[in-house]
Design a protein around this nucleic acid. Structure first.
Length: 560
RNA sequence: GCGGUCGUAGCUCAAUUGGAUAGAGCAACAGGCUACGAACUUGUAGGCUGGGGGUUCGAGUCCCUCCGACCGCGCCA
């Protein structure tokens, strides 16, 4: 078997395609008008079948008949003209204008066989030859990562994984905000801590970063260099302390990200964009496009032409570029190198979305940039709000949170909600092993499958992958098979709508359908043919559940 | 004030981007293990989708308008 071959269609896709063609034929035969493209949707209510189509509504206007009449007409014709459909569909009904389809058990059985056959290739889309840049997590290099970066990283990394599975060439980036005044503030803060190791009276700057995490950095310098910086002028020690702190903190951020299961393709320094002339190039580009003007000695970007409420400064009166100028350059670079650019920003960048999208349009790439906001997280512990005052230096760092609840719980909770929804994260709940905790529910499902497989005869497990699946006809078996078949579409939806929370929901649904199957159907105690078929279903469920969790960066334990 | 996000069951949230009787989980109530993990499961109850108007075969979803919450609105980054 060629492992690079494009994955086959699901058997149910073939069945639906056959229906699509037959229905289009029936519609045009009945009304002498071309049938519109037929779309299928999964009905919300199970009694409406596995799939439904609303062609009749689309035809109603031109055919001048009621949707229900059209749907009935099409169904009648299908049963006469395309009897072969009965092999794939156990029912085709016209209800309220919809045409509801129920797939026959052999289709679901074939879907299980395909999932087992394809393993990790199941749900994989052929290469799109499209490069996507994904930026997420980015923080100032002035302290440890906190909870909101955890959410952003969980979302971004999950999206990246999903995009890769869907055949995109994903490039993940972290932007280091290491240009500008805050780095000076960092340098002064570390310097103050450094001086305080020799002189406890030495004053701490008002705009400094008071967190204790700077102490070891200052002590490192003190140990290595002694008191020599105490005599040096500021323009000598400041760049040194700022850079030293930046490097140390970025390294720590990187370690935290890695511990969180997130690796980036690029850690992009802002300072470097300035030094290598990229910022100048970006500004120059806007100037060439006639989108800038000078006023009061400063250079402005005509942001109002792109929906912003104000024109924005690129170069200050003193000639120094603004943050926006850096962002022009950075996005210009990304837009040139990628087919699509996605930024996942923190909640404080809310007002920045329009500006940055306008920028993409201005640079000649309208529609190539998506900006999403990962909303704020409120940390709770047993219902009580955890104080996160940055000014008081009381920050709950991401590392501390991971220490307390583990990577799995944190990553699962962080993608559970749509990212534009604010999230309450209860640290106590996240480690509780009870039914209020969705992480354990899902992981328990996986462990339960693993447990059954452990107790099965090894030769049965071996034989299961190639077993005849015809015995699988129980409603809970077919429901589980149908759920597992949704995996590719769920991943596609996650990508298309930038909605990783659908993965968390899907994991829950798979676990739930397995639990129901497990409750209603015995596996090991059955006679051989049924036993093997059910083992095959369990294997398929385990595979899909594990891969769903893997996309989210959550482990799938065999026991717990 | 301007702009953005949001408002859905008692609570936390979904809703395949305009589809059918708005769905899950938790909490509540009533059931289910002499059988592979009860960290499970079955059922019941719970709603004028913040209010009002509009668009159409059809609106939680789109438009207008109020109300309310959060967040942005610097020649900071």
């Amino acid at each position: 078997m060629n492992r690079h071959a494009a994955p086959e269609q699901l058997p149910l896709d073939d069945a639906l395609q056959a229906f699509r063609e037959a229905a289009a034929g029936a519609a045009s035969a009945a009304y002498a008008i071309p049938a519109p493209e037929l779309a299928f949707e999964a009905p919300r209510r199970p009694e409406f079948g596995d799939f439904a189509t609303n062609v009749a509504f689309a035809l109603a206007k031109t055919a001048r008949r009621s949707p229900q009449a059209i749907a009935s007409e099409i169904v009648d014709r299908l049963t006469h003209d395309a009897p072969a459909l009965a092999e794939s569909f156990s029912s085709i009904e016209a209800v309220g204008g919809f045409i509801n389809l129920r797939l026959a058990p052999p289709v679901w059985q074939a879907a299980i066989a395909k999932i087992l056959r394809e393993g990790d290739r199941f749900g994989k889309a052929p290469a799109q030859n499209k490069r996507v840049s994904l930026e997420f997590g980015s923080a100032n290099p002035t302290g440890p990562l906190v909870v909101v970066q955890g959410r952003s990283m969980s979302i971004g990394d999950t999206l990246a994984n999903a995009m890769r599975l869907r055949g995109y060439d994903v490039f993940t980036e972290w932007i280091i905000n290491d240009a500008g005044g805050q780095l000076d503030a960092l340098g002064r803060s570390i310097y103050a801590r450094y001086r305080q190791t020799f002189d406890s009276e030495y004053p701490f700057p008002d705009d400094g970063y008071p967190g204790e995490y700077l102490l070891p950095i200052a002590q490192t310098i003190a140990h290595r260099d002694g008191e020599r910086w105490s005599q040096a002028p500021e323009d000598e020690w400041l760049p040194y302390f700022a850079k030293f702190g930046r490097d140390r903190l970025v390294a720590e951020q990187r370690a935290t990200a890695r511990r969180f299961g997130v690796e980036y393709d690029l850690w992009q320094s802002e300072a470097e964009l300035h030094e290598t002339g990229k910022v100048r190039e970006g500004i120059e580009r806007l100037r060439q496009l006639g989108l800038t003007y000078e006023q009061d000695g400063a250079l402005f970007f005509r942001a109002t032409q792109f929906g912003d409420d104000k024109d924005r400064v690129l170069l200050r009166r003193d000639g120094r570029p603004t943050y926006l100028a850096m962002d022009v350059a950075y996005h210009f670079l990304k837009l040139k190198q990628n087919d699509r650019v996605v930024d996942i920003l923190g909640p404080d960048h809310h007002g920045y979305i329009g500006r940055i999208k306008g920028l993409a349009a201005a640079l000649g790439y309208p529609g190539h940039l998506d900006v999403a906001i990962a909303q704020q997280i409120t940390l709770l512990r047993g219902g009580e709000q955890v104080s996160m005052s940055k000014r008081a230096g009381e920050i709950a760092t991401l590392d501390e949170i991971v220490d307390e609840v583990g990577v799995d719980a944190a990553r699962f909770f962080f993608i559970m909600l749509a990212m534009e929804s604010p999230l309450s994260f209860d640290l106590k709940l996240a480690v509780e092993k009870n039914n209020e905790n969705p992480v354990y529910y899902v992981q328990y499902g996986h462990a339960r499958i693993a447990s059954v497989l452990r107790r099965a005869l090894p030769e049965d497990v071996e034989a299961a992958t190639g077993a005849d699946l015809a015995p699988l006809v129980h409603a809970s078996e077919l429901a589980l098979a149908r759920r597992l078949s949704e995996f590719p579409a769920v991943v596609a939806g996650v990508v298309d709508h930038l909605a990783p929370h659908r993965l968390a929901r899907y994991a829950r649904d798979v676990a739930s359908d397995f639990h129901q199957f497990y409750t209603e159907c015995r596996i090991l105690a059955e006679e051989r043919a049924l036993r093997l078929a059910r083992l095959a279903l369990a294997l398929a469920a385990k595979s899909v559940l594990a891969r769903t969790l893997a996309l989210a960066g959550v482990s799938a334990p065999d026991s717990m």
